[in-house]
Structure formats: C-alpha cells, structure tokens
Design a protein around this nucleic acid. Sequence first.
DNA 1: GCAAAAAAATAAACTAGTTTAAGAAAAATA
DNA 2: TATTTTTCTTAAACTAGTTTATTTTTTTGC
Lengths: 171, 171
Amino acid sequence: MDEEREEITRFFKKSTFRKKTMIMKAGEANTLHYYIEKGLLRMYIIDQSGKEFNILFARERQWIGDLGTPAETPYFIETVENSKVYSISEENFHILYKRYISLANYIRKSYVFLQKRFVSILSKTAEENYEELVNEHPDLIQRLPQYQISSYLGVTPVFLSKILAKRSKKD
Amino acid sequence: MDEEREEITRFFKKSTFRKKTMIMKAGEANTLHYYIEKGLLRMYIIDQSGKEFNILFARERQWIGDLGTPAETPYFIETVENSKVYSISEENFHILYKRYISLANYIRKSYVFLQKRFVSILSKTAEENYEELVNEHPDLIQRLPQYQISSYLGVTPVFLSKILAKRSKKD
DNA sequence: GCAAAAAAATAAACTAGTTTAAGAAAAATA
DNA sequence: TATTTTTCTTAAACTAGTTTATTTTTTTGC
C-alpha cells in the first residue's frame, strides 16, 4: 500500500494557492482533478442571472474536479482558504483508476454523497438542510462565510440570515 | 468484446416484472443492481410527510440501483412499465467493475448525469426544468404519467399542471 | 488603531410553488 | 358500453423563499 502510494504520487503535481484563487473556470476543456492536502475549496456554477451556486466543498484528503472532463466544463473551482493541492490530468487519472480500484471507489463514494445531498435539497426545507449540515459537518460552518453556506443550501444569504435569527431565539 | 459480454452475462439473473411492481424497498440492505433490457423503472424516496420524490428514471440499456449498497437503502425502486431486467449482487458487481473498466465508467457517467440534474434543480425554475426535460428526453414525457414527471422536477402535480396550462396558451 | 471594504442583519413588498378541495377527463375493467 | 378508478385541471388561500434597499457588525489592510 505504501509503494502504491508512492507510485501514485509520481503522477501528481504539487501546488500552493492563496485563498480566493480560481483554479478552474467554466468554458475550459480538459480540466484537472485535484487532491487536497491542506485547505478548503469550492466548486460552483454561475447561472443565467449571474447568481452563484455552490455544488461542493472539498477539504483535507478529499478530491475535487469535474468528472465530466475532457468535455468543456460548466463549473468553477476556487480556493476558500490558502491551500496545498495535488493535481492530475484526466489521462493519468484514468490510468490510475483502471489500475487501483480505490480510486474508482472515490467516484462511487462521490456519487453516493451527491445523491444524498440531492435528495435533501429536493425534499427538505432550507432550515432542515441547515440543521443537517450543522450536525454532519460542523467544521464547515466554522470555516465558511455564511453567504457561501447559503449558496450551498440553495437559498439567498438573506433567507439564511432569517433562519439563523429564528434559530438563536429558540435557545 | 463479445466474449466479455457473454462472460458478464453469466453473473446476472434475468427477471420479468409487471408494471407497478416494487423491486427494491427502503430499509433493505444488500440490494441488487439492475440492468434494463426492456421497460421503464423509477427510483424514489418517501419523505417524512409521506411525499414521493423521483430521483431517477431508467429505461432500455440503462442501470438502476443503490450504489450505497450494502448499506441499508433509503430508496424504493418500482417498475413503471412491464419490464425485463438483469439483476446482479453487489459482490459480483464489484468483481466486474474491477475487471472491466466499462462498468466503472457507468458509475462515473451516473455521477456526471446526477450533477447536471442537481444543478438544474438548484438553479432553475420548475418551468425551465420542464422545458429541459422535454428537449433532452421527449420519450420520457410520453411514457410517464404527468404526476411522475412533477415528482421528478421536485414540484407538485398541481403546479406542473399550471405550467402546462400556461405553456399551451403560448402557441 | 483607523479607514475602508466585506459580511451579516433587518424590513417590507413580492413571487414561485404548496395545500386543500372539487369537478372534469381519461383510462382501465367488467 | 357502463362503471369504477386513476389522472388531470382549476381555483383560492397560503407559505417558503426572493428581491431590493438600508443599517450594523466584522474583517482586512495600512
């Protein structure tokens, strides 16, 4: 497992980014996959009206990237904190997940995670989704500005603020 | 490729189901994966209030199943039309996608599809999502009752009916 | 530590979508 | 083809979440 790790590492390029650096941009093709050593990143879209929606946050020991590559991506990826990441091209990524099933499993896990999130957004209120986030990922609440969380929950900052005001009265 | 196909086939069990048959039920563990030869199936959840939300439709030459298995599933799968399907256990499914990358790619494609759908639901109005469905999958509009489509779009049947009334005035 | 900028809170008017209910139309079954 | 069941439509009152604008609080850079 350790030499597997070492061999795998040779496919990657290490980079450091200051926070709020855009590392992937809608319209680009043949984008990279990123594995995060340190920091916090977000993947988002910008809709017709210019509004941002966060699709995914990724932090230490997690992956982020557009699995639709090499097709032109509709997504943006930006660092939220100063971050250290390893990047890999689609070609090499493909070679690796052919060879090491653990990497194919990352894709499967991503799917399961997204499906769960999808169901929550679809069937629950923003208030319930906020509670869920607090319970399952309290660290994200600390590390993210509130307007990034609202965008992840699919509501406006104004509405999340309302939820929080109501919530703090309850204690 | 043909002997690959033949070998793969040996892992599967063929079944036929009448429409409206439930073949997977929330609460079950170690659920099967299904490959559809003929027919139309839907995967859905039932929320706290008893409301159904369709997560996925799958038809000829598509897969359906809970990729979170062997964990207890929160999903239901039901035939919408009379259907012929091949089922496979998680163990065998895993063996196969270790051996044949095409199967691992199915998971990747599923992810890409779900992410696209997620973004649409999050950032577009129900009306826009309906138009998108009509354009990209007109066949589904034909094969599904309207209330199943509304559940897929995340709105009530009443609201979809309103959208359609408004829409038909426009021509 | 101060000034400027960014983020969060509050309010009020608005809109997309829900709920409940009742009737009409279409499909399934006898 | 008549009857029953399922699906769809319409209407009206409602609610979750948006929009725009203003003020307050917090963070950042010099």
